[in-house]
Computed example of a mutant assay.
Amino acid sequence: MKKALTGCLVIFASLNLWAHGGPERIIIEPEIQGKLNSGKIVYKFDLFDDQAHKAVKDQDLVDSHTKKLHLIAYDTSLHEFNHVHPVFNGSNWEAELDLPVNGNYFIWAQGELADGTEFSSSVKAQIQGGLEEIPTAPLGDVRKALADGTVVEVASGKVQAGKMIMLDFTVSRQDGTPADITPYLGAFAHVIAVSPDGTRLIHVHPMKGRAPNTGMLHATFPTAGDYRVWIQLNDKGELKTLPLSISVAK
């Protein structure tokens, strides 16, 4: 489901069934159905249009934020994270993923069909042979993060489940010099928030704030709990991914 706001796009998604006939129109069908080995892998999959009853190829999609397809992967502890852009190799889709930790991962494919339909579909993958699985635990309310010298801080304020909120955030540098924010995939930043159980994903493109190096995040968190929030942006041409967490009240 998509909800458009002025200058801001919010995509809400929940885990779909894993077979044709599920609630999602576009279904992900991984090439390997069993366990995957850990590390840097080439993840191959098909996309199936359950309404048109055909495979989805490169020509069936239009660019969405400068890419035909976005693939988001994270583990159940909400510590490991990938946001990559698959390519169609003539027979199926493929993307490089870095999955170092054992356990279950959620994998989402997001894009837009040529008829204007946007989709956000998911499967699970089980990883073996890597680092010990990270146990799930409450993340708490941690609204400041540092990545390679870039600092992002989200404003304080109560967030309540099911209610639209607007949160300001600032971008700075650890050394005190001003950040130099340039668009990332056609937006000021990309924000991906995931529910505590991993089954709900919010993908937001925040608006640029009134003050330099600030942004405004609009979102509705559907359930209570500690959400993992990854903010991705370009600072001086370098992509930074900053993990925070926001506690959502009932």
Rank of each mutant, 00 (worst) to 15 (best):
E133G: 04
A155Y: 06
K240W: 07
S195H: 01
F81W: 13
A55H: 13
Y105S: 06
A13H: 02
E24S: 02
K68P: 00
S77P: 08
R228I: 05
H65N: 11
N102T: 11
E31L: 05
N213A: 15
H70F: 05
S121D: 08
F88W: 12
V204P: 03
S121F: 04
D175C: 13
K163F: 10
A137G: 00
G209M: 10
G34Q: 14
P222C: 11
T136H: 08
S64L: 15
L71I: 13
A224F: 03
H83T: 13
F169D: 02
S247N: 12
S247C: 10
L61E: 02
I11R: 03
A95K: 05
P243M: 07
C8D: 02
T214I: 02
G130Q: 09
W108S: 06
L78Q: 03
V56N: 04
W18H: 13
L217Q: 00
N16S: 14
G149W: 08
F88V: 06
T66V: 14
T136V: 10
Y74L: 06
E112G: 00
E96P: 12
A193F: 03
L9T: 04
G111L: 01
F188A: 04
I202P: 01
G162M: 05
Q33H: 11
D75G: 05
S77C: 03
K158I: 12
D63R: 14
Q160V: 09
A189Q: 08
L113M: 13
E118I: 15
D115N: 13
Q59V: 02
S245H: 08
E118W: 12
K40C: 00
P206F: 00
F106A: 03
D235L: 01
P183G: 06
E238T: 15
V62P: 04
G186Y: 07
L17D: 14
K44Y: 04
D46V: 00
E133S: 10
Q126L: 02
Q51I: 04
I72V: 12
M164W: 12
L78C: 06
D148P: 00
D197W: 03
N234M: 14
